[in-house]
Design a protein around this nucleic acid. Structure first.
Lengths: 344, 344
DNA sequence: TTGAAAGCGCTACCAT
DNA sequence: ATGGTAGCGCTTTCAA
């Protein structure tokens, strides 16, 4: 009968490895850190680690060294493939450098963001990636006091907390309006969410309004409806409302490809041809916009690249902090591109 | 001229708070843990915390208490909205209970999974969520040795490492084939990825093969092509190949709604009507399948619910571990449902 | 190349 | 209700 005790068995510690290998803890520590030890010692230590199944305790290491090897990332929503791509880019860089990702989902709630920042700062991350440039003052204060490297993404902020990587959402949306106008459309509407918390959506709306105004396209045709995150169902409902209100609309730009797709499907059901009866454009270059019929004219941004860049900026900044090098504010403006496809 | 020094300022520690409040560290610790202290003391401590901007150090707490308050989650891909939903469900539960999510992306690579497990185990998580039930022996061993609560998701494993929550992918796929057959389709094909590493995709293929065999539908029409994660482009290319090989196919089931969508769009381009000329079904009930034209017949699973359930199981298991209560193996089978829509 | 000692910031435990 | 003491398991620093 085997001794099947259930009481907590403490996992092996570094001292156990040291004893088994016949060396001191320090030597084991050096092996783990990849520092130079003699060939023979290395061998013995590795064997001991292996035979004990030793896994170093990160909290002890962090406490002692002052380096957590954590990067925190906060996104408004885990559901959007756009933010997921940014996380993926960040994670790739983070993993390549042996760090870990601590993820938080703010649900587009600034107070939730503040709460997450406060909670996650306890782990003394080496860097924090935020989404957008709009944050509560308490959030900024917590970050400032922690002196932690911060990079804001998805928005080319003019006054970042520290660094930012992104584009101007208003400008990109305006570019789409100008593009539609250049193709001959005159009565251009906009479909977006009703939530003021979706700052990037609001910025795109602002860009639309500015472009409509400067092109003298008449009164704006603004349909704001539904909560973020914007989904496909959003587009179907919104286009109906917009056309009810302004039946002679000849083109619509949507705050997201997802709602553009929903809008197109709804038009088809209503017997409207896209783009012959009405043109519909999206934003974000989601996968669906490349594969649906008609393919959707959109604005490509670079979510994955933003994530990677954010990771790189964070790592440089973390290094500078360790070395006491000053960290100037920095804005990295990424490009966007209007992609003309079949829907306009 | 302000004293703009760049040298690292150590953040306030608990002792600083204690001193300012005129109490001992222990009292501060109790306040933070929400334990009972006198009203007056509480007030003073909270004020001190606030005025210093004190943020407790999690690594010190973890080292001392033995509790990390981390939950680790490993997914094959951050891009799939299905896995993102599971993460969201898990994260919601995790956050509701004040813990943090450590996220890892295995890229469908078992060795990457093992590496992540090894790395993340250093943080002594209170629980680990894995995707699928197929893992390297080293992964299982690391997890077993750590005695950490583990739950595998997306697969009703008959022999879980500890717990599992999911459904039988083969059975669900077979149910779809039977559904198609019941609607009168006879020459049913299957489109999936070519990668053996996508275990759930392979299981669905197995289910297809079993159903085709038991229904005596003749030789299987199997098109395996492309790498995971399966995307929309996958479906377009695969359907072409499948129809080239077996032109009289009357129905196709795809390993994912995304490839089903791609396949349908490709059919439209070829002038084939769906479902009149060919029926196409998907798997997973992605958003696109509810909104495209025709809407796509699919198998709904419950990604978000699986994530939540996994989180709950993990927390219970973590509590049991703390209290020395034995943790029996446990399999939670979640449902699936064939949704008949327009595409079949 | 290796080792011994000190201590990182917190919590458990036992006093008072 | 509150405080003192003793570590948690590592890395840093200095010495050999």
């Amino acid at each position: 009968m085997s001794n099947d005790t259930t009481q907590p068995i403490t996992p092996p510690r570094m001292a156990d490895v040291a004893e088994l290998a016949g060396v001191s803890k320090m030597t084991v520590s050096r092996v783990l850190a990849g520092k130079s030890v003699s060939q023979k010692t290395l061998q013995r230590v590795l064997e001991a680690i292996d035979s004990l199944g030793y896994v170093p305790d990160a909290s002890a290491g962090t406490l002692s060294s002052g380096h957590s090897e954590f990067i925190v990332a906060l996104v408004p929503s885990l559901m959007s493939s756009n933010f997921a791509d940014t996380i993926r880019g960040l994670n790739d860089v983070v993993r390549e450098n042996g760090l870990c990702l601590l993820l938080g989902d703010t649900g587009y709630q600034p107070d939730q963001e503040a709460l997450l920042v406060r909670t996650l700062l306890r782990h003394r991350p080496e860097g924090v990636m935020l989404t957008g440039s709009s944050h509560l003052e308490i959030t900024r204060k917590l970050l400032r006091q922690a002196e932690v490297p911060v990079v804001e993404t998805w928005d080319a902020s003019s006054d970042p907390i520290e660094q930012s990587v992104g584009f101007c959402n208003a400008e990109a949306a305006a570019a789409m309006v100008r593009h539609l106008h250049a193709r001959g459309y005159q009565r251009i509407g906009f479909i977006g969410g009703a939530s003021a918390l979706d700052v990037r959506g609001q910025q795109r709306r602002t860009g639309y309004l500015q472009a409509v105004s400067s092109l003298a396209l008449g009164a704006p045709r603004l349909m704001e409806y539904g909560e973020s995150p914007i989904t496909m169902s959003h587009g179907g409902e919104s286009i109906g409302r917009l056309l009810d209100k302004w039946p002679d609309t000849d083109a619509v730009m949507c705050v997201s490809d997802l709602s553009a797709f929903g809008a197109i499907m709804q038009c088809h059901r209503r017997g409207l041809k896209v783009p012959d009866d009405i043109a519909i454009a999206g934003f974000g270059d989601f996968e669906v916009s490349r594969f649906c019929t008609p393919t959707i004219t959109t604005v490509a941004v670079a979510p994955y690249a933003m994530g990677r860049r954010a990771g790189e900026m964070l790592l440089v900044s973390a290094k500078n902090r360790r070395e006491g090098v000053p960290r100037p504010k920095q804005v990295c403006v990424t490009g966007y591109q209007v992609l003309q496809r079949e829907s306009t």
